[in-house]
Write a protein that binds this DNA or RNA. Structure first.
Length: 212
DNA sequence: AGCACGATTAACT
DNA sequence: GTTAATCGTGCTC
């Protein structure tokens, strides 16, 4: 393998993201999330994702619904154009990676919850040392730690030619292999939002997050 | 100005 | 199964 092939990028186009979050979440299963770290590609196959703010009525689980549905310093990117990275800090220590979907002015987004690592695994193993490979990227904050994704990448254009963070075509996933269920970690979110089946994952994939 | 909690994780018992 | 870690955000007073 040559040095130039290591740097090759073929990101999904902006138009891939410009549709409802649930459609994007399902289409992302099997795609490969990649991050350039010290000139090396690091990442894996997306195996679990959740849709937020994808309904006519305000999704009470969605950050974009807070502050009376108006953008804040934190959520501005969510309200912007599709194909950008919305990255936020939570629980005092964790970063979460989302892709912005839909039309500008709406706060649609998809949370990437788990990857099957397949690229630059020596870098992932360093970032996730002390953990077994099965737990390197099987959770939303685990994968950001593994791929060195933090606030410096908030707002990144995932489709630009020079991006250091992008998603490309990966593995084919048939509709029959996609499972769905309620989103994880919604806490006090009221019904019906608590139970909306807007979490999608690849059936039987061992890197899907474990706990509820 | 103060406060409760979060789109979680790892290390406990 | 239970709990500490750790702090920015949005909401209430």
């Amino acid at each position: 393998m040559t040095a130039s092939s290591l740097l090759h990028r073929s990101p999904l186009p902006r138009t891939f993201y410009a549709r409802p979050a649930r459609d994007v979440a399902k289409a992302l299963l099997g795609a490969r999330l990649l991050r350039l770290v010290d000139g090396q590609r690091v990442g894996g196959i997306i195996v679990e994702a959740e849709a937020y703010c994808d309904s006519a009525e305000p999704d009470r689980a969605c950050h974009g619904t807070r502050n009376n549905g108006q953008p804040t310093l934190r959520t501005t990117v969510m309200f912007g154009p599709a194909g950008h990275a919305y990255i936020y800090f939570t629980y005092g220590m964790h970063w979460m990676f989302n892709v912005v979907t839909g039309e500008p002015g709406q706060a649609n987004a998809v949370l990437i919850r788990a990857l099957e690592p397949d690229t630059g695994e020596w870098i992932i193993s360093h970032n996730r040392r002390k953990q077994p490979r099965s737990k390197w990227t099987n959770g939303p904050a685990k994968l950001t730690a593994a791929l060195e994704i933090d606030n410096k990448l908030n707002g990144t254009e995932l489709f630009s030619a020079e991006t250091v963070l992008w998603i490309e075509n990966g593995r084919a996933v048939l509709p029959a292999q996609i499972a769905s269920g309620p989103r994880v970690g919604l806490g006090k979110t009221p019904e019906p939002w608590f139970s909306k089946p807007w979490r999608y994952w690849i059936t039987d994939n061992p890197f899907v997050s474990q706990y509820r």
